[in-house]
Design a protein around this nucleic acid. Sequence first.
RNA 1: GCCCAGAUGGCGGAAUUGGUAGACGCGCUAGUUUCAGGUACUAGUACCGCAAGGUGUGGAGGUUCGAGUCCUCUUCUGGGCACCA
Length: 866
Amino acid sequence: MSDKQRYNAREIEPKWQRVWDDAQVFRAKLDRSKPKYFVLEMFPYPSGRIHIGHGRNYVMGDVVARFKRAQGFNVLHPMGWDAHGMPAENAAMEQKVHPAAWTLDNIETMKAQLKLLGLSIDWSRELATCDPGYYRHQQWMFLRFMEAGLVARKESAVNWDPIDMTVLANEQVIDGRGWRSGALVEKRKLTQWFFKITDMAEDLLSRLDTLDRWPERVRTMQRNWIGKSEGARLKFALTAPVPNAAEAIEVFTTRPDTLFGASFVAIAADHPIAQTLGGQDPKLQAFIEECQRLGTSEAALETAEKLGFDTGLRVKHPFDPSWTLPVYIANFVLMEYGTGAIFGCPAHDQRDLEFARKYGLPVKPVVLPPGADPNAFDIGADAYSEDGTLFRSQFLDGLTVENAKRAAIEKLQALGVGQRQITYRLRDWGISRQRYWGCPIPVIHCEACGVVPVPDAQLPVNLPKDINFDRPGNPLERHPTWKHVACPRCGNPARRETDTMDTFVDSSWYFARFAGPSETAAVDKEAVDYWLPVDQYIGGIEHAVLHLLYARFFTRAMHKIGLTSIDEPFAGLFTQGMITHETYKDLSGAFVFPEEVERREGGVAVKRGTNEPVTVGAIEKMSKSKKNVVPPEVVADTFGIDAARWFLMSDSPPERDSEWSDAGIQGAWRFVQRVWRMVSDSLDTIPAPGTLATQSMTGDALALRQLSHRTIAGVTDDLGAFRFNKAVARLYEFLNGLEKLKGAGSDFGAARREALETLSLLISPMTPHLAEECWLALGGTGLIVDAKWPEADPDLVRQDTVTLAVQINGKRRAEINLAKDLADPDVETAVLAFEPVAKSIDGHRVKKVIIVPNRIVNVLLEPAGS
RNA sequence: GCCCAGAUGGCGGAAUUGGUAGACGCGCUAGUUUCAGGUACUAGUACCGCAAGGUGUGGAGGUUCGAGUCCUCUUCUGGGCACCA
């Protein structure tokens, strides 16, 4: 290959990036003459540096943005920084840098890296959530939410590290111990701030049905998370009241039909009755403390061994006061769900069954499976939770589960001890964090006036800059002056709230801020009404529940206070897979970066320069901690960013994980070179720009035109449906065909020009720099980034003949070419007369012929001898 | 533990509503060119078999003329589980 032909990405890519920048082509404007399209990738946390794995997410969004632009949409494609969070505080502790300095440094680095990717981003809308210009509006919204009744203050449990005297995140609790101190973690109650997301549970649930451009599995996960269940709330009266606590235990159940199978009542360790009793009984207190040591994560609670403690209390059965049940404290009962108390029916609930077997409690079946013998039916190792008929249940006998539920609730109601109740698993959103690097909650605590909102005129409540992380705990709490303020209401000395907001709050409205940035308001209403909702949101499946649910809540809350006119922020959602890479370890067992590894003959790997052997480990998600990351700079330098973009879009379907490999990026690099060679080699043989291919062409020219137009149709479909890998495969086929079809004459030249222009346009969303360079060489008008997406000519896309597979008794035996859409009887005649088929039939009687039009023919024969 | 996904050649993967399993890329094999090595081009490449043919989509059953696709059970891998973001 001569130097003249080689495509030099290192020079060409920055050149086009400058051209786009200078022309400000990606600057979004409110323009009602075009349909709008808002593309958004979940914004990054500025953790340090990006690796090529992060690139997949942004490139995917960029392909969509460029594709929609070409299709005539007014596209908004912004980028920003989810800049609050724990890693900045960890860095402050470990490296003695200020969280703000660390964060801003990272943003600078990562922005430069993102720019390298050649993304079509409107950087004028860039934002960082740690900027007081952003979070002041968040504080303002918090105050409006308070007025609208969307904020609550209540007790909830946190992981408390008694040595470091600090609150721990779940990920900082390892095997029940604090990650730094190693101390046994305690569950502690704090009064904290909440958003009342449960008020909107029903709407958040039912509107999921309308989100038809969301993956079904994300909707399912959200449905399960909200966890609507219908059942009953009922009281079990205590045989003897607990002094200063209660006369009855209230439980929630979804199975009131099984009440006659009840054998115990269990309450949570932090249930008020348990707390009261614990004060009187040291053994019980010890058990409660053991339960609390499990921390607050659901996974930890659920995987722990199911344990109970008999309180000695007894309750009366609501349908038969002479029948009493024991009351246990159980570690699997959660105070946060329902009433913090359950009744156990071991025969029809697996968890209750295991508990009953462990503590020797009765197991009495009351639901009979269809067809089972009531005298013989017994429960073994498995509870029976399916449908059936009630028995041994007095007035419920003979009813189905469904009817028995209804009858039981009616009876409870008549007796005045219970009623129908709908419960959600969803809990209110606790937004309090006892940390520094977050948005301060704008309230003041005054001894006389109580909780007082910070007046709007005093916003933002800025974080103090002079803090230190020498000691664990919240620096805001121990700052000498920051929290001491005068009460806005009475003027007496008061105390600032030192909790900051969960970073999920920051990311719950940034898309609205992108759409309508404003100096004076949280959002510019006109702009937000124009751009929202986000037409295509792209991010990892790990955000399927929390982030997406919180953003849906927040959008409703913003609507309620008049900031927006919509309830659903994301009309379309795509969840992409992660980029993985091999891991490498040196002799000391330390991870080694891929760039330091050299692969030798026979699969041996050594450390570059030193010849120290390196072991090749599992293929895992790219992460800094495992060092299996590839920096975008290195890729851009060796292969060009277009090759990387092409590779990231090829191979795996976008929702799946995909492995980054040297071979893969080299293949992509070859594609870039081939495209360029094809274009530059053709320049001498194609007619001048503007020469059009015509309808009257025949032969190779027609064949090439058909290929071009079929590719247009296919790629357009694929890109619209997020099938980037298939679009890539089609473009390979196009290029292969283009290299093979060699015609001559002016017709072919014109068809070839059309094909090359088409190729440039079709690759432009994926490899925009290469496309610009080809477009320039071909003499296209203006920038390709402003060019219109090509349209397929239906006459050229249509196929006249089809290849049908012919099966004999379900086994494929032949292929036959027939006219498309041929009538069934004609197909049958043609197939039966077709020589290879006739040979197979040979003497057998044809029982039946199944014809699937344009696809397959299945000839069924009578077995021999019949 | 619970919820949600996924599993197809040596590898990444393709396969409209159930209708030719393996598109496309990587790798590999043989050849050509250039050249002494990384480029380009041509041909081949699921597995077994000389062939005819047979077998094949994590595993075990089932439905169907026909199953990668639907149903039941099961194994393994990944994501989430409310203070990682």
